[in-house]
Computed example of a mutant assay.
Amino acid sequence: MHALIVVAHPESTSLTHGIAARIGAGVVSAGHSFEVADLAAEGFDPRFSEGDLAVHRRQETPPRDVLVEQARIDRSDTLVLVYPVYWWSMPALMKGWIDRVFSNGWAFDFGLDTGLEKKLRHLKVHLIAIAGADLRTYARHGYFGAMKTQIDHGIFDYCGAKVVTSELLVDSETQAPEIHLAAAQALGKKLFGATGQAQSTTAA
C-alpha cells in the first residue's frame, strides 16, 4: 500500500516536517511505501487563477502542475495532510493546493442539470494539524469543531473521501517535540491494516 503525505511548511527543519517524516517511517516499518509532497520546497502555486476557474467550469483541461498532483493522489491508497494551524485553519498554501487540485471533473462532478457526483469515495484521508495553543483553548472557543466542519466535512465529504483520522496535536510550542514525533510514528505504523485498509485513530 502507498501513502501520499502532503506537507505545507516553509522550513524543512520544522516540527511539521519532522512529524511527516516520522509518519513515513512508521509506514515503511509496517511494510508499505510513501512519498512526500513538500508544497513549499516544490514551489506549488496555490493561487486560484482565471485558468483554474475555466477548469472548474469545464471549459479547459487542468494545467500540468495540477495534473501532476492529481496523478500523485491517484496512485496512492491514502492521503495524509500534515500542516501547522494558521488562524484556526490550514495554511493558505495547502488550502490553495486543495482549491486547484480537487477540481470539478476530477474530485467531483457538478452541473446545474446533473447535480453533484462525489468522485473520491475510494480515498482515505488522514488530517494531522499541529497547534501551538492548548486543548482547553480549542474546546472553549469551538475551534476544533469549526475546523472539522470546514475541512473534514466541507472539503472531503463533499468529494466523497473518507476522513479516517482528524488529529489535533496541541501544545506544539511548549511540549517536548518527541511527544508528537512518537505519536506520528505510531500513526504511520497503523495507517494501513493487515487487509490494506486505512486505520482509524482517536482525535485529540
Rank of each mutant, 00 (worst) to 15 (best):
A129Y: 11
I130P: 07
I130F: 00
I130M: 06
A131K: 02
A131P: 01
A133Y: 04
A133G: 15
D134V: 07
D134Q: 11
R136K: 14
T137E: 10
T137L: 08
Y138V: 01
Y138W: 07
A139E: 14
R140I: 04
R140L: 03
H141E: 09
H141D: 08
G142T: 06
G142S: 10
F144T: 02
F144W: 12
G145D: 05
G145K: 08
G145T: 05
A146H: 09
A146R: 10
A146K: 14
A146S: 04
M147P: 04
K148T: 12
Q150M: 11
I151K: 08
I151S: 09
D152I: 07
G154A: 01
I155T: 12
F156A: 15
D157C: 15
D157A: 12
Y158C: 03
G160Y: 15
G160L: 07
A161M: 04
A161W: 01
V163K: 07
V163A: 01
V164M: 14
T165A: 09
T165V: 02
T165L: 00
E167T: 11
E167F: 04
L168R: 02
L169E: 00
L169V: 05
L169P: 11
V170F: 12
V170Y: 07
D171R: 01
S172Q: 01
E173D: 15
E173S: 13
E173I: 11
T174N: 01
T174C: 10
T174V: 05
Q175A: 09
Q175R: 14
Q175N: 12
Q175S: 08
A176D: 15
P177H: 01
E178H: 14
I179C: 09
L181T: 03
L181A: 02
A182G: 13
A182N: 08
A182Q: 11
A182M: 06
